[in-house]
Design a protein around this nucleic acid. Structure first.
Lengths: 235, 235
DNA sequence: CAAATCAGTAAACGACTGTTGACTGAAAGT
DNA sequence: ACTTTCAGTCAACAGTCGTTTACTGATTTG
C-alpha cells in the first residue's frame, strides 16, 4: 500500500542503477550482493547464518535475481574469498615492486600488511570468521592462501645471511611463526575499535617485539639439532 | 500415521530415560541437548546455523521441552563454553597437583594440553569455531579464558632464572607467543584426521621446535631495549 | 494417600526461508 | 527495424523456524 515512490526500490547496494551498459549494471549488482554480505558480516552474524533473501534485501534486488549471479550461498562465499584475497595479492605485488627498505624489511612488511588490514576490515573480518567456522571449501581456500604466504616468506627469509644454515623445514617453521604472530595481531586489530589509536599502536609494537624475539631465537638456532625426542601420544 | 512403536521416540541422546530420580533425568536430558549440539558441530555446521528444533530432534525431545533447560540458543552456547572449559580447568588442576617433571616442563605441559585436546575434540572444535565467529558474549568468554591462561603461564615463566630480567610486560608477550603456538597446533590437530598418527606426531614435534626457538630468543632478550620505534598508522 | 511439582508432549501461530516458472522491458545483436 | 538476449520482477510453493499455550502423567512432597 502507498508504494508512492519510484518503481525501483533499492537498498544501500546499487545506487545509480540507471547508467552504464548491461554488463556494467550486472557487475554493479554483483558487487552490491558482495557488499551486502560484507555489511551484514560486520555485525555479530556469521556467514552461515546469513540468508539469501536477507542479502538480496540489503542489495536491493529480488530473491530470484540472486540466481543471475550465483548458484547459491556457497558460491557467493567463494566469490567473497576471491574478492578478499585479490586485493591482498594486488597490494603485495605493489609492495614488492616498490621495493622495501633494506634495513627494516620485516618491520616494514608487517606494518604494510597491518595497514592493509585496517583499510579492508570487512574482508578480513570475513576471513577471520570463516577460517575455522566456514564450509570446508572456504576453509581449504583460506588455508591454501596461508600456506602459500608462508612459502613466500620462507623464500624471502632464505636470503638473509643469518638464516643460510636453516634447513628448509626449519625456515618454513620460522616463517610460520612470524605469520602466526601477524595473524594474531590482525585478529586483535579487528577486535579493537577502529578509532582507538592507542590500541592500534600497542598492537603494532607488540608484533614488532615478537618479530625481534623470533629473529633473536633464529640467530642461535641450530638446524642439526632438529627433532630430538618429541612426546606425542596417538590419543 | 502408523506410529506403531513405543510412545517415547528418542534420538542418540538420552538412552535409558526410565531410570533415576527426576533430577537425574533432567540432568541427563540437559546433557543430551549439549551433546546433540556438539554432535552437530562435529560436521561442517557452525553454532549460529544450528536450529533449536534440530538440536531437540537429535536429543530426542520436543522443541518446547528445550525451554525447560535453556531460555534459548544463546544460553545453550554459554553452557557449552562452561562445559568445555570446566574439563580443561579440571585437567590443569590435576596436572599441577601431580607435579610436572622439573627438566622438560614446557615440553611436558604442551604435550599434556594437546593430549587433552585430542580426547576432547568436540569441545575444542566448538571453541575454535566460535572464537571469532560466535556471539560477542561467547567470544568474550573465550578471550577471557585465553587471557587468564596467558597470565598463569607468565607467572610460571617468571620462576625461570633465565627470565628474571624480563619486564612483566615482556613476560606476557613471551607467554602469549607460546600460547599462540599451542593454539595454532591445536587447530592443526583438530583439522587432522584423528587416526593419522604421523600427522599428530609432526604437529607435536613442530610445536616443540617452536618452543625451543622462543626459549632461545628469550635467552638473548633485553627488556630494556623495549619499544624502540613502532610504525603504526591510525588507518 | 492426596496434593503439588514439573519434565516433557502435542498442536497451533505467524514469520521467514530457498527455489521455481512465467513474465517484462531495456540493451545488444543482426 | 527486427529479433534475441537476459537482468531483474512477481507470485506462489512447500518447508522450517522459534515460541506460546494447554495438557499429561510420573515423581516428589507433606
Amino acid at each position: 500500500m502507498s508504494r508512492t515512490a519510484g518503481r525501483r526500490r533499492r537498498g544501500h547496494g546499487a545506487e545509480d542503477t540507471e547508467t552504464g551498459s548491461r554488463d556494467d549494471r550486472k557487475r554493479r549488482t554483483r558487487r552490491a550482493l558482495l557488499d551486502a554480505a560484507l555489511d551484514l558480516l560486520e555485525g555479530e552474524r556469521s556467514f552461515s547464518s546469513l540468508s539469501l533473501r536477507e542479502i538480496t534485501r540489503v542489495a536491493g534486488i529480488t530473491p530470484a535475481g540472486f540466481y543471475r549471479h550465483f548458484s547459491g550461498m556457497e558460491e557467493l562465499g567463494q566469490a567473497l574469498i576471491e574478492d578478499s584475497f585479490e586485493s591482498l595479492h594486488q597490494m603485495m605485488r605493489d609492495a614488492r615492486k616498490d621495493g622495501l627498505p633494506p634495513t627494516h624489511i620485516i618491520r616494514a612488511s608487517v606494518a604494510i600488511f597491518l595497514d592493509h588490514v585496517q583499510s579492508h576490515r570487512a574482508h578480513f573480518r570475513f576471513i577471520a570468521k570463516e577460517r575455522y567456522s566456514g564450509s570446508s571449501a572456504v576453509r581449504l581456500a583460506i588455508r591454501k592462501e596461508v600456506r602459500l604466504w608462508v612459502g613466500e616468506v620462507a623464500v624471502d627469509l632464505s636470503r638473509f645471511e643469518l638464516l643460510k644454515r636453516f634447513s628448509s623445514e626449519d625456515l618454513q617453521m620460522l616463517a610460520g611463526m612470524m605469520i602466526n604472530a601477524v595473524i594474531a595481531a590482525t585478529e586483535l586489530l579487528l577486535d579493537a575499535e577502529p578509532g582507538d589509536a592507542a590500541a592500534v599502536t600497542r598492537i603494532y609494537e607488540t608484533v614488532e617485539k615478537q618479530m625481534r624475539l623470533l629473529v633473536l631465537g633464529a640467530s642461535l638456532w641450530d638446524s642439526s639439532l632438529t627433532g630430538g625426542n618429541a612426546t606425542p601420544r596417538p590419543a
